[in-house]
Design a protein around this nucleic acid. Structure first.
Length: 482
DNA sequence: TTTTGAGTTGTTCGA
DNA sequence: GTCGAACAACTCAAA
């Protein structure tokens, strides 16, 4: 039903939340607040939109994040209107119902979404105001001396970081003017984003989706993690990483906020700068991957290097299944895959090991792994996830050379020396001595018996032999062109 | 235009 | 045990 505007009515603005689920330093929120008009915040769950559909773990996160945003908006005297369906139709209906004359939102930097949004803005018949809430450097902005986009990380970041300039963070508005009447909203319960029968999310409890949880992680990073980041980030058995990735993925915190906070810390504590720069480079990789995605919209499905199109990937459903379930017989691989399944997240070092194992030891198409990660990671990101997989495969930008094949045994011994990570996620091996925990088949029968391990029964034998697999991969990848 | 140095994260082998 | 070289060749980016 169309509301009739009376004398003195001020047309409200529609504030469309997307992957910017925060109030602090959100340019769209600031713009809506400064408009001086009533604000109607809305989130639209697009079932068949242009965006890559979020996986199950991402939807688990979204459920909590929207709840948190709704609560934060309530404190500001506002609400979050939830709708499901086609964004164009819903926004058009909302504008008609509420008399809104302006739509404010932040870009989603997936090329297909950018394209649809441009068409949507043209068709909607209301003024649109578009902001960047999720990147430090807009894709395509950083250029080489010859005016080309970068495809190698190090020169990209060397050139891009100084272009970020000084950052003035915007606070959250204390209040948002409500409209005279609220449009109808669906409920999160309607959407059923939280899994049931079975609820596989019982071990996701360490996460606190939402803006407050994001800032708690940031403060922990600044107070504790950054100082030892350079080394500790490689130790999966230690809390050495920021764990900001899922918060960044949904925009509960923006890279500007993280970058500014870490740079401020570097200024206060120059001794930390080396370690902190290592962390900032990870933020840089996120930027870099969005830069690549902007140039290659099919990053998740097409090899960046066409030479890989001819690669003879193996079809090995049972091995793929063993990989997904964490039953490969290589403890560090299995620990990673189980951590992913149980918690929706995997340590970065172990992501490389498990990805390398799938691609190089099993010769299974990187897209199989990318798809699995997309569905199971709470931080699944449309740029970073395919970018990372293509990097490991060697088909991507600035990719790893083909002969870099991670040895799952030595990687385990090097980065999980006492086996804490394996013991936690592969409990059937927990009683093995450290010397054998990354290669249980090397343990003596006495050690195995004492640890209650029966290879092939309580824990699998390796599904491939490392030396054979390495030689096979070198042969297969040889001559693909680096 | 040509040249040059460099390139996220490794492994293995032989001295 | 430690160390350096080989593992290929290519492409990028800047001088």
């Amino acid at each position: 039903m169309r509301r009739t505007k009376g004398e003195g009515d001020i047309a409200p603005v529609l504030l469309w939340f997307r992957r910017d689920l925060r109030l602090r330093d959100n340019p769209s929120v600031v713009a809506a607040f400064r408009s001086g008009r009533p604000v109607i915040p809305v989130f639209i769950l697009e079932i068949a939109g242009p965006a890559r559909p979020p996986g199950a773990a991402s939807l688990w996160w979204l459920d909590k994040s929207l709840k948190s945003l709704g609560a934060d908006l309530a404190v500001a005297g506002s609400r979050l209107v939830l709708r499901r369906g086609d964004a164009g139709t819903i926004l058009s209906d909302l504008a008609a119902q509420t008399g809104a004359e302006r739509l404010i939102y932040s870009r989603v930097y997936e090329p297909q979404v950018l394209e649809r949004d441009a068409a949507l803005a043209a068709e909607l018949g209301v003024e649109t105001e578009i902001h960047n809430a999720s990147l430090l450097l807009k894709p395509g902005r950083v250029r080489t001396g010859a005016g080309q986009p970068y495809s190698v990380f190090t020169p990209f970041w060397r050139a891009g970081r100084p272009q970020i300039g000084s950052i003035q963070l915007a606070p959250a508005p204390t209040s948002l003017t409500p409209p005279a009447a609220w449009p109808v909203s669906e409920t999160l319960a309607d959407w059923a984003l939280h899994p049931t029968s079975p609820d596989w999310s019982s071990d996701f409890a360490d996460w606190t989706p939402g803006e407050a949880g994001a800032h708690a992680r940031l403060h922990r990073l600044l107070d504790e993690t950054v100082a030892a980041y350079a080394d500790a980030r490689d130790r999966p058995g230690v809390e050495g990483t920021s764990r900001l990735s899922p918060h960044l993925a949904w925009g509960e915190i923006g890279p500007r906020q993280v970058f500014a906070a870490v740079e401020a810390l570097e200024a206060r504590a120059p001794k930390l700068a080396g370690s902190a720069d290592k962390f900032l480079a990870e933020i840089g990789w996120r930027e870099f991957n969005y830069n690549i995605l902007g140039q290659h919209p099919q990053l998740a499905t097409q090899n960046l290097k066409p030479a890989f199109d001819a690669f003879p990937w193996r079809r090995a459903p049972r091995q793929l299944d063993a990989w997904r379930k964490g039953l490969t017989g290589y403890p560090i691989v299995d620990a990673g895959m189980r951590q992913l399944w149980r918690t929706g997240w995997m340590h970065n070092r172990v992501r490389m090991i498990t990805a390398s194992f799938l691609i190089k030891h099993l010769l299974i198409d990187w897209r199989e792994g990318e798809t699995w990660f997309w569905d199971t990671l709470v931080d699944a990101d449309p740029a970073s996830n395919p970018g990372g997989w293509q990097w490991v495969a060697g088909s991507g930008a600035d990719a790893a050379p083909f002969f870099r094949i991670f040895n799952p045994i030595t990687q385990g011994e090097k980065f999980d020396p006492n086996g804490a990570y394996v013991r936690r996620w592969v409990p059937e091996l927990a009683q093995l001595p450290a010397a054998a925990i990354h290669a249980p088949w090397t343990a003596s029968p006495i050690e195995l018996a004492a640890a209650g391990v029966r290879l092939g029964e309580t824990y699998p034998e390796p599904i491939v032999d490392h030396a054979m697999a390495r030689a096979r991969a070198l042969e297969a990848f040889k001559g693909l062109g680096g």
